[in-house]
Design a protein around this nucleic acid. Structure first.
Lengths: 239, 239
DNA sequence: TATCTTGTTGTCAAAAAGACAATAAGACTG
DNA sequence: CAGTCTTATTGTCTTTTTGACAACAAGATA
C-alpha cells in the first residue's frame, strides 16, 4: 500500500469508487548486473516520514485485482508490459495503522535495465534497491518482500519465469547463461538445447542475431500460449 | 462465501463488525476410501436455491485472515485441528451478485474419515462430495475448486504431503492408491514400488498387514528424518 | 587461406521409465 | 488336501531420457 488515502469513511480524501480496506502491492524483482533488486517508491505523503514502500494502492469497485495491480504499477512507476502473478494476501489485523487494510500482493521478475522509471501520482521517487540492503519500509512491506523472495527462489526452477529476464527475441545460449547464473551451475550446451526445444515452448523467429564476431545464432521467442495450453494438460516445467 | 449476509450498507442483516466486500472460503480436500473429495455446505439462505458452496463467510475487523478461516470452518462444519494454507485470492468484478466481494481461499488436505461433520450456523447440510462429480455451485466456487485441485496435484507430486493421509504404518499399495486417487490416474504397481523404494524414504517395519484374505504385504513407515536430510542435500521429491 | 569463436547436429552409453510376464505367499473352497 | 483366488513381489525387456562429448557448420578475422 502506498497511497496517501486512509480507508476511513470519515476521511474525505478517500474516493468513493475504491474498495475500502483492500489494497494492492506489487513486488517487481529486477536482475541488474547479477544483482537481484526490487522496485520501491517513496511517497509524497508526509505520514510515511521518508520511508520506502512497494508500489501499490486502492482497488476500484469495477476493477479486477490484476488490472488494479497493472494500473497502479504504471501510475506510480511508469512500468508496463510485465506479467504480474498473484503472490499472497496479507491481512494481519495490525499491519496498517488505525484501520483494517488487507493487501493482495502481486509479483514479477524482470530485467531491470529494460525499463525507464517515471515516478507518478503519489510517488515522488522510484528506484531499484538491492534486496540485500533494503531501506526502512512502511507497514509490513519488509515481511511481504521476505515472503516474495522465498517464493521467487523456489519458483524459478519450476516455472518459466526466467524468460521474462530476456529480450523478446533471444538465443538459446542467452537462455542457458541465464539459468546458469540463477542456479549457479554449468550446463551442457547441446543437452540444454535439446531439453528446452523438446518442451515446444520456443518459436523460432527465423532471424539471426546481429553484430556478433562469430556465427550468428537463431533467435527464438517464448510461446506463452503454448505454455498455457501445455500446463493445462499436465505438463510441468522443470530445469 | 457462504453466509446469507449481503455486504451492502443498505442491508440491515450485515453485522457492523465484519469487513465489507471481503470474505473467506475454505477448500478442505479429503481422501475417502481412495476417492478425493471436497467438503461442501448447503445454505439455509433461499437465494442460493439449493446450490452448494465452500464453507466460508465474512472476516471480522479484529480477526486475522487465517483465524477467520478456522472460525468459519468450525462454525459451519464442526471441523477443527487441520492446517489451513492460503491458496489464492479471487476478486473478479462480477464473481458475486450485486456487490463487489473479494474472497481469500484457504485449503487443507485431510483424511476424510477422521472428522465428524456437524452443520452449524447458516449451513443446513454439510458433506463430502467427489471432486469428479461436483454438484452445481454458487458464484465462482467451481473455478476456485478447479484452481485448488491444480495446486494440490502439483504440491502432492513435489512434496511428500500425501504421507500425512496414511496411518503410521502402511503398505506400498495403500500409498499407491493414495496417489492414484489424488492424481486421478492409474499407476503400475511394480514400477511405482521401484520408484518409491529407490528414494530411501521408507523404513520397513518388518511387520505384515493383518486380517487380509490374501497374502499380507509388508508395512513401512515414512522416514521424515531421512527426507529432511535428503532434501537439504539437493534431493527433490518427485512422483 | 588459415584459424578463431560460437552455433548446431550427431553419437553412444548409462540411467530411468514403462509395460508386462512370472513367481510367491497366503487364504478360501470343495 | 488339491485347486483356485487374490494380492505381493521380483524379473525382464523395451523405450525414453539424460549426460558426456565428438564432429561439423557458419561466419568473422588475421
Amino acid at each position: 500500500m502506498s497511497t496517501s488515502h486512509i480507508p476511513n469513511t470519515k476521511s474525505p480524501s478517500l474516493p468513493e469508487h475504491v474498495i475500502k480496506a483492500l489494497s494492492i502491492d506489487n513486488l517487481i524483482f529486477g536482475l541488474d548486473e547479477d544483482e537481484l533488486k526490487i522496485l520501491l517508491v517513496r511517497q509524497t505523503d508526509p505520514m510515511h516520514q521518508g520511508k520506502w514502500a512497494l508500489p501499490g494502492g486502492w482497488i476500484r469497485y469495477d476493477e479486477n485485482l490484476r488490472d488494479a495491480a497493472y494500473r497502479l504499477l504504471e501510475e506510480l512507476t511508469g512500468i508496463r508490459d510485465v506479467y504480474l502473478e498473484q503472490l499472497k494476501t496479507f491481512g494481519r489485523v495490525d499491519r496498517f495503522p488505525n484501520e483494517r487494510v488487507v493487501t493482495v500482493a502481486y509479483y514479477a521478475l524482470v530485467s531491470a535495465d529494460n525499463f525507464s522509471l517515471v515516478a507518478g501520482q503519489t510517488a515522488e521517487e522510484v528506484n531499484w534497491q538491492s534486496v540485500n540492503k533494503l531501506p526502512e519500509l512502511v507497514y509490513d512491506h519488509a515481511e511481504i518482500i521476505a515472503h516474495g523472495l522465498t517464493v521467487l527462489r523456489h519458483q524459478v526452477c519450476h516455472q518459466p519465469i526466467g524468460f521474462n529476464l530476456l529480450p523478446e527475441k533471444f538465443t538459446l545460449l542467452q537462455l542457458q547463461a541465464l539459468y546458469e547464473a540463477i542456479l549457479n551451475i554449468k550446463l551442457d550446451k547441446p543437452n540444454f538445447r535439446r531439453k528446452i526445444m523438446k518442451m515446444n515452448l520456443l518459436s523460432p523467429c527465423n532471424e539471426k542475431q546481429q553484430g556478433v564476431p562469430h556465427r550468428a545464432a537463431n533467435l527464438y521467442t517464448f510461446d506463452a500460449a503454448a505454455y498455457e495450453q501445455l500446463s493445462q494438460s499436465g505438463f510441468s516445467f522443470e530445469i
